[in-house]
Nucleic acid binder design. Structure first.
Lengths: 227, 227, 227, 227
DNA sequence: GATGAATGAGGCTTCATTCAT
DNA sequence: AATGAATGAAGCCTCATTCAT
């Protein structure tokens, strides 16, 4: 069961990534290493100027590569957006994998913990999420299809399983899993006008709201509930 | 009190819009009329290709204007994005104003009605909201500042007042109002993977979830609650 | 002889100006009045932004006219440049005419006085001269020909006559008259790096230099010479 | 002392030119070579139509480059104007450097020789000087500041030193150096109405006039004087 | 005579991608 | 495998002039 919750999607040879982000390079490890640098460099500039306003030249510079080299490991600007997305998911899964969620026996507590764990992670990568959630739609059709599938399988799927465990069923499961997935980025996407209060509270409040919305927390109170 | 809930923000002479979207044209009515056409034309093409991929030439064509004429009534591509945003808010306020919300005496029922009313409106303008919520960040700093202020005052402010009426207070009010505002676009932003089920249910489910999350609905049940 | 020195060139009906700057308007006085306003408005904006960077719209605004009205009294942007030039010459001649130069019997003193008088005038209209001496070349061929002819007849001609009176002759006369004409704008065209010293001296120094260059002042000394 | 008179200002790495005319190109030699071609091509078309009426496309064509390539080596149209200016100064200094001026021991003869040498040079590059002296003012503030500084340092500075050597001093030095600098372009800027006479004479006449104006030539005579 | 909205060609600049070295 | 120079199609915006009212 553990495996079914956190199932980090590493692309394997011959798998989607290869078809989506083709490269003439032979050495698979080198490709991985270079792409890591590309993602690292690209995000840095993307966060400042957004996807459209960032030029390939700037990405190459930030990645410490020449433009020729860059195009040796990717084949279009869109590819980079896709790699960033993939990178985000990998990071998230790694975070979850080391959080001990899987060892929690009680479904309610496991869900609560997953929420907190995810929110903490997102809070640590605000820029990344802000970026992804506003730029993803600009992927070309080909990449977009895959990203949406990844999101449904990995992210929504993750919540689907956890919610299923607390006893949900039917059509509403799909609804609930998507909604939770959506709520997780609330603080980041709306963060700008929540600056005033105690940061810590927001996180608890959001978890409470989510659980209560799901009907897992009786009445409004920040002290009670299965944590 | 009625007035304080729905307070449609029409720009007056000398008001923000004039400074933000300057035009050499003298006739204010003509400006309004032409800008209406620009917004209508622009949204049509924006929905298809997104802001960045849409050219000014296409906008002019879709608006039935020459490029020169277009630039007689706006002064940059960003202006158009801003006008679209403004248009959305005006539409929303008009919708609320004719919905009879203000006549509902009970605060809980009024909130519920406002939620439904807003969701219906957003549902009728999916393209518009999908577009706005992913492109707004690309406004230049000048326009962005105003848009965020408008959102806080008009949209968040609307929920703030309604939530206040049901007995909330303190820091959480801000949190709650923003969260509700955020939830309203859930169906639109995530709509793509909720296609399967009965469409009608989603709306009710989201209202329930929201009210329950706010602690205004006792237990999970799709039959109960103040509708 | 007096007349031959200062011969203010007022265009008469059917004269050059009419052919060069056509207008459908009938009332000659009205044309004059409107054009005065155009020149006044245009120079104001020209001085700030230069000819090319100033738009017709700005000129209309600065002249307190509509664009339609503007084009009723001129027929191209170049026309305005031409009118400005003409205006400058008219101003200069008026200045000379009221300076009493003509009454000075001694040719040397008359020349000296004319130099000073011109320099003072130019000093009072720095912007105008700076503008004219860098933009004139942008006149279209038709206007340019006339402007050059006017300059040769009125400005160079003015110096030609004065220099002739002090006893010059031959080919050198042409050379000298042109050179003096050229020297008069030195302070304005180069003024920027002569800011330090006493402004008053520059004027005297330039007169001395000119007279000495012409061989009309024995040795270098700012005290001697026919003033 | 020799060195202090003709000090051709070649831009070095990290020097002004780099900041003023940025380029993404790496190879410095290639930049030099390409810019040489740009200047050569640009001047050819500038001379015909002036700066404002010449399009970037025409410059690219005349330089034998694509527009993309052109913008690889400059970053705005103004840059080109600046490069032309710089080119003119480099040419002039080269001309002076090979003229043997520095070997002339007598200050008066050295000055006279410098005047002639400069006039000959200007005469050989009429178009260039005519162009530069009427377009410089259209440089944007950033470039203009540098151009004026260059002129003051290189051109005016050159005359300043020569005049100093013949025994001038004080405030008048500045005045005299600027005036001489100004007089050098007289023939070019006014050339159009000196076409008739013997061309050769003009040059001598101007030198005489200048020296006499400076008080270095006793009386008016075209035979005497230190040549 | 007056108004100012409308035209539309053309200006400068950018940049993802390719390819010779 | 690596480099970075080269391409050229668009992109956004301007503005002198005309013309319907």
């Amino acid at each position: 069961m553990v495996k079914s919750i956190i199932d980090r999607p590493r692309p394997r040879p011959g798998e989607p990534e290869d078809r989506l982000v083709p490269s003439p390079a032979k050495n698979r490890d080198l490709i991985q290493e270079k792409r890591r640098r590309i993602v690292a460099g690209a995000t840095r500039v993307f966060f400042e100027k957004g996807f459209h306003r960032t030029t390939i030249r700037e990405i190459a510079l930030a990645s410490g590569m020449s433009m020729g080299q860059l195009y040796h490991y990717i084949s279009s600007k869109d590819d980079i957006l896709f790699l960033v997305y993939e990178h985000m998911q990998a990071l998230w899964f790694d975070h979850l994998a080391t959080s001990g969620i899987e060892e929690i026996a009680d479904p309610g507590q496991r869900l609560t913990r997953a929420l907190r764990c995810t929110l903490e992670f997102i809070g640590q990568h605000k820029d990344l999420f802000l970026f992804i959630y506003t730029e993803t739609k600009y992927l070309d059709r080909k990449h977009l299809r895959v990203v949406l599938a990844m999101d449904d399988r990995n992210v929504v799927g993750f919540w689907r399983r956890l919610i299923l465990d607390v006893g949900w069923a039917g059509d509403e499961l799909e609804f609930a899993a998507n909604l939770v997935s959506f709520l997780m980025v609330f603080l980041v996407l709306r963060g700008w006008n929540l600056e005033h209060g105690g940061r810590g509270r927001d996180l608890d409040d959001l978890i409470d709201f989510t659980l209560r919305g799901l009907g897992l927390l009786g009445e409004r109170s920040r002290d009670g509930g299965p944590r």
